[in-house]
Design a protein around this nucleic acid. Structure first.
Length: 295
DNA sequence: CGTCAGGTCTCTA
DNA sequence: TAGAGACCTGAC
């Protein structure tokens, strides 16, 4: 079924859309700059634009935007060209995933900016989501560009590599980044001196891209897979954080198994759909608190 | 007050 | 080459 797109009053209405639930999309761990409003809609900033996303019945409404931005930014950002029904049908052949998908049936994997995601997930290491969000917002407020005031809040772009590369480690630390400040500074210098680098990495195969990303200090296997999955269109990436480890040990593999063995297991079992499987499993594990009481 | 969080780095054997 | 410790920060 083809999407029906209409524009009115500075908003874009999407009809005939399936597999799109804002809560599932924005709350499955892939993004940090989207926040829930009192009416259940979400407001966020990406690619220098701020919009509000609301599900009304079967329609999705994007507020504070227009058709041009929808075509140029949001269509790809929300991965609207992809048929998630097929993906879910395929993954549902596995009993565990069948259940997980029922919880997060409206998940979509966003296509986010590589640079922003690199820094965001460096910040995520050994950190909590509210703290990660706070650090990213502080960086944006201090070193991003003011965009507009929307819904009573000033909105800023995510700072560029060039801007961050000129800061001191201490200045970056004032944004609650902690010991990760030196990694952020290092990555900023590398990327600002080679603007094509992330783009080049994006064009590599999964294995090679992972190898290149791990060369950034502060980027290990988990963060590398997040970057590949959330900003480099590599659906075979399978980031293993504590939740995914717990849910994998609960349902699939024996406890105490090494992370790279879980990685191989997932690659064998889910192949190119591993990243989608990871998102459904992560959301499922966190919503249900699977394995939370175990060590 | 300790503990610990969506890991990674560093230092040892 | 694998395994322990340390690590900013702030909420409990």
């Amino acid at each position: 079924m083809k999407l029906k797109i209409t524009e009115e009053n500075n908003s874009v209405i999407i009809e005939n859309i399936k597999d799109f639930v804002p809560k599932h999309i924005f709350d499955c761990g892939q993004c940090f700059r989207w926040n829930e409003e009192e009416d259940g809609s979400y407001t966020g900033t990406a690619y220098k634009k701020t919009i509000n996303v609301k599900k009304e019945g079967e329609k999705i409404i994007l507020f504070n935007t227009n058709i041009d931005d929808f075509k140029n930014i949001w269509y790809d950002y929300f991965d609207l060209k992809k048929d998630y029904t097929n993906i879910k049908n395929e993954l549902s052949k596995d009993n565990v995933l069948e259940g997980a998908i029922k919880f997060g049936q409206g998940i979509r994997i966003l296509n986010q900016d590589e640079w922003e995601i690199l820094i965001s997930f460096i910040i995520s290491a050994n950190n909590r989501i509210p703290m990660i969000k706070r650090a990213i917002e502080k960086l944006s407020e201090k070193y991003g560009v003011f965009l507009e005031e929307y819904r009573g809040k000033k909105r800023y772009s995510f700072p560029t590599a060039g801007t961050l590369s000129k800061l001191s480690e201490e200045e970056i630390r004032t944004c609650s980044t902690g010991f990760r400040a030196k990694y952020i500074l290092s990555a900023s210098k590398i990327v600002s001196e080679n603007e094509k680098l992330l783009y080049d990495i994006k064009n590599l195969c999964l294995k090679d891209a992972r190898e290149e990303l791990i060369k950034f200090s502060g980027v290990g296997p988990k963060v590398a897979d997040c970057i590949m999955l959330f900003s480099m269109n590599k659906s075979g990436a399978f980031p293993i954080d504590v939740w995914v480890k717990r849910v994998m040990e609960h349902f699939y593999v024996s406890e105490g198994i090494k992370l790279n063995e879980i990685q191989n297991y997932a690659a064998d079992k889910f192949g190119d759909l591993a990243g989608y499987a990871q998102q459904y499993l992560f959301y499922y594990a966190r919503e249900l608190g699977i394995g939370r009481n175990k060590k």
